[in-house]
């Protein structure tokens, strides 16, 4: 008989670093570096002692660096603020799969101009337990940004996060 495990509540602090490929209609594609700091809360419910469904939500503060100059132009850097929600399924001390949806507010660097976009992310993750109340998670997210200022924006990154877990009585 499988024991019914209580849900955990966790505080998550993570960072994402990625390569964003951007394509404009009339300019060649370019790569921009993306960095983001994430803060969120999550919960894990499990009916199995070694795996479970997870749900998380939080905020992010990020920066997308300007691309290299190429033939007289570059892609502008951005400062971003985001709201994100994520869910997935993962083994304890093992593999999992997480999907994330993100809504971001972005400002072009050196200007007072704002725009917004939404983003979807999907990738495998690995969870390592650090102790009774903490675990480390690594993931390799592939993501797509739905933006109105470029033709396509997508990329791949590396995300690391620490989750501090609290089990309700």
């Amino acid at each position: 008989m499988v024991a019914e495990l209580p849900a955990d509540v966790s505080v998550i602090v993570g960072t994402r670093h990625a390569a964003l490929m951007v394509q404009h209609t009339q300019f060649a594609a370019a790569v921009q570096p993306l960095s983001e700091l994430q803060l969120g809360i999550g919960t894990r419910t499990a009916s199995h002692p070694v795996a479970g469904f997870r749900a998380e939500a939080g905020i992010g503060v990020g920066h997308i660096g300007a691309s290299r100059l190429h033939r007289g132009y570059r892609y502008r850097g951005l400062v971003t603020r985001s709201l994100w929600i994520a869910s997935g399924w993962a083994f304890e001390n093992g593999l999992g799969l997480m999907a994330t949806g993100r809504a971001s507010l972005a400002a072009y660097e050196m200007t007072s101009l704002l725009f917004s976009f939404v983003e979807v992310e999907l990738g495998p993750c690995i969870t390592s337990r650090l102790g009774r109340h903490a675990k480390l998670e690594w993931s390799v997210p592939f993501f797509y940004q739905s933006r109105h200022d470029v033709r396509r924006a997508m990329g791949i990154g590396l995300r690391g996060a620490i989750a501090l877990e609290f089990t309700p009585p």
Partner: peptide, 21 residues
């Protein structure tokens, strides 16, 4: 996507004089 991203990163890293058209 992954291969395209790596390829573009390599191309970008090669670098060239951006110049003024």
């Amino acid at each position: 996507i992954g291969i395209a991203g790596v390829m573009l990163a390599v191309v970008s890293a090669c670098g060239n004089d951006p110049g003024l058209a």
